[in-house]
């Protein structure tokens, strides 16, 4: 009878521990997404780390030069218009605005006026008569370069991240409390149903170690097989940013798994302490 009761307790403990494992994994996923994928700081840091704005500037400059040269103008008409400072400030303000939940505004008035002034100066210097055709052509060229500038600094990816972040956070408001309560209930029953409390603690620890190891191993697999490099999108600067950003997101999960293992180490000490106390009493 005693043996049967003991076996029953072990089976129930295993079931509870398995459910705990899944609940811990759910928590890891939730926190991983919050601190990694949907973290504003992650996005901003990875944009800087991947040299995003410098590469946007290089690409924008090259495209704009091709446009003006094709139209018969020298690249000097772009002088002091497309600058690294303008691209960086414009891009950074756009990203910060979107991440702050604002409607991003890209002000190109100064850009347009500087460019118009350069074209005017060039035409005057060359002694070219401003006919309607030339004015229309120049106007179209300026608009095209302005649009090229706007589309270069508009990182639509951030808009989508914020949109999904809103839905995710609404979901988290329900999931996190529910999961936490369930974890609390299962831990309570695991400890309560055992005569010797440290045995219940062990099952909680098994669940924590299992879930932490699964998280770390999954992250390690993705890092070793370089899944984050298989994104393959254009342009290159966007691809580089995504590679860095995804790599960081994977590492966040591994760090969380590491924290889980640290907590389980503390739990092992606690289990040992409780056990020794029981033995001594």
């Amino acid at each position: 009878m005693k043996h049967k009761k003991s076996r029953m307790q072990a089976v129930i403990s295993c079931i509870f521990a398995l459910i705990l494992t899944l609940l811990f994994i759910t928590l890891y996923v939730c926190f991983g997404f919050s601190l990694g994928v949907f973290s504003n700081r992650s996005i901003i840091e990875e944009l800087n780390r991947s040299n995003y704005y410098n590469e946007v500037y290089d690409t924008l400059n090259k495209n704009a030069e091709e446009l003006v040269i094709k139209a018969g103008f020298p690249a000097t008409v772009l002088e002091n218009v497309i600058t690294i400072e303008r691209v960086y400030v414009g891009g950074r303000n756009y990203v910060n605005g979107v991440l702050a939940g604002e409607e991003p505004q890209i002000n190109t008035d100064k850009f347009r006026s500087d460019l118009t002034s350069n074209f005017d100066q060039y035409l005057t210097k060359q002694g070219i008569t401003r006919t309607d055709d030339i004015n229309t052509g120049v106007e179209a060229m300026i608009s095209e370069i302005e649009n090229e500038y706007k589309s270069s600094i508009q990182l639509q990816f951030v808009n989508y991240i914020i949109e999904y972040k809103t839905h995710f956070m609404n979901l988290m408001k329900v999931i996190i409390p529910v999961v936490t309560i369930l974890i609390g209930i299962l831990c309570f029953f695991l400890i309560k149903m055992r005569k010797y409390k440290h045995r219940g603690l062990r099952y909680i620890n098994y669940a924590l170690i299992a879930s932490s190891c699964m998280t770390i191993l999954a992250g390690a697999y993705l890092l070793v097989t370089k899944q984050y490099e298989k994104v393959n999108v254009t342009p290159d600067y966007y691809n580089n940013f995504l590679t860095a950003y995804l790599k960081w997101d994977i590492m966040v999960f591994m760090y969380l798994g590491g924290i889980g293992l640290l907590i389980s180490a503390l739990l092992i000490s606690l289990t040992s302490f409780v056990r020794n106390r029981i033995m001594n009493s």
Binding site: S151, F157, V158, Y164, V231, V233, T234, Y238
Partner: peptide
């Protein structure tokens, strides 16, 4: 989809 649609100049950058 987010990665695709989030690309600068989407749609159009597909060679």
């Amino acid at each position: 989809m987010i990665i695709d649609k989030g690309a600068p100049g989407y749609p159009g950058d597909s060679n």
